[in-house]
Simulated scan of single mutants.
Amino acid sequence: MGSSAGSWRRLEDSEREETDPEPRAPPLDSPSAHWKNAVGFWILGLCNNFSYVVMLSAAHDILKQEQESGNQSHVEPGPTPVPHNSSSRFDCNSISTAAVLLADILPTLIIKLLAPLGLHLLPYSPRVLVSGVCSAGSFILVAFSQSVGLSLCGVVLASISSGLGEVTFLSLTAFYPSAVISWWSSGTGGAGLLGSLSYLGLTQAGLSPQHTLLSMLGIPVLLLGSYFLLLTSPEPQDPGGIDEAETAARQPLIGTETPQSKSGSSWDLSLQERWTVFKGLLRYIIPLVLVYFAEYFINQGLFELLFFRNTSLSHAQQYRWYQMLYQAGVFASRSSLQCCRIRFTWVLALLQTSDKHREFAMEAACVSDTLGISISGVLALPLHDFLCHLP
């Protein structure tokens, strides 16, 4: 096994030919490995969600293109823009920023729903490469697009990158100490703050939205570098060696058993059993859906209509500030595990389902946030039209 994650994954993708033995990686619990993996997963969380956040921060600029067709550089509008609907009390785009939200979340929802059906059969390296390429493609496509439709296609690429990366990197944490999950979570929060802050800062400094997006092409490169070069090699789950590690890596998100040991697992659950487990999870799924629904209904459905006219900031600039302040709160909450720990976590064990049902339960519950965000985008579209037609 190689001394880096890259060497292990190259073996995974090869034809399993004979290779010369390489020096063993340091134990995962050694101080150097601990910090490399902690920093690695923080960067992966940051890079994975970065394009997703930037597209939401740029939503107002993306939709302004319809009013500014032919403006190839996405020049910053003046400080007092003319409302699209002059009869409305609001300064409205013809399309709600919820359209960008839907383009940025629906592909992620589809990936999360389909991932348990076979994504685990694909090795990690191709998945990470696809995620990085889609992230870079999203920045390029939105930067050079001349229409809202093409820009939304770029947003879809950002969503594919984020969704595929999330299910990939979360499954990868099964091969590392559990502490890396909190670092991943903090990194995703950091993506919200740094993504929105960088877009706000660069555009506020006078850089056009187009050039701002192009300047962020280093983020996909950083993602690939962190995965292939920074993470230490995960150790096999048993003495079976690399083949056993590969087999485990191809299992669904939570499990690390070999296919032969999967009898009695969620793959064997009947539809009736799945429905019974799902009904028991509703007490946890519904609050999560409601929280994310309310959060994004305000963030992408109402923020764009909150415009103070008698200020030095344009409507687009105010929208970017809203996004940055919102993401600052997200970063604080997702990083709280490093400074505030819940001591009586054993209470949560009383709420678990059985081992047989646990994998299905995790798969069903993990779509709660994405589902709530998707519903908020769908309902924010007609609300935008209703409010913008008020006299």
Rank of each mutant, 00 (worst) to 15 (best):
M1I: 14
S3T: 15
E18D: 09
T19Q: 12
D20I: 15
P21E: 12
R24Q: 13
P27S: 10
D29M: 11
W35T: 07
K36S: 10
G40S: 10
G40C: 07
N48Y: 01
N49L: 12
V53K: 07
V54G: 07
H60D: 15
L63S: 05
L63E: 00
L63F: 04
L63V: 05
V75A: 11
E76Y: 04
G78W: 11
N85D: 04
N93S: 08
S96L: 07
A98D: 03
A99F: 12
V100K: 04
L113V: 13
P116H: 06
P116N: 02
L117R: 14
P126W: 08
S131D: 03
C134R: 01
I140W: 08
I140R: 00
S145D: 06
L150K: 04
C153H: 02
V156A: 14
V156Y: 02
A158H: 10
A158S: 14
S159P: 00
S161C: 13
E166K: 02
T168M: 07
F169M: 05
S171E: 10
L172P: 04
F175W: 03
Y176I: 02
I181T: 12
W184N: 05
S185Y: 08
S196R: 02
G201A: 15
S215E: 06
M216F: 14
G225I: 08
S226L: 02
L231R: 00
L231P: 06
P234I: 08
Q237K: 12
G240T: 07
E244S: 15
E244N: 10
L253C: 01
T256K: 09
T256I: 15
T258W: 00
P259K: 10
P259C: 07
S261V: 10
L271P: 03
Q272Y: 09
E273C: 04
F278Y: 14
K279T: 11
L281K: 10
Y284L: 10
P287E: 12
V289L: 14
F293P: 01
F293E: 03
A294I: 08
Y296A: 06
I298W: 05
N299W: 03
Q300R: 01
E304P: 11
L306Y: 01
A316S: 15
A316W: 06
Q318I: 02
Q323F: 03
M324W: 13
L325R: 14
G329V: 01
G329W: 11
A332K: 00
S333W: 03
S333E: 08
L337K: 13
Q338S: 14
R343P: 01
W346M: 01
V347W: 08
K356V: 00
A361H: 08
A361W: 04
E363T: 10
S368P: 02
L371F: 15
S374R: 02
S376Q: 00
G377R: 03
P382R: 04
H384F: 06
P391G: 11
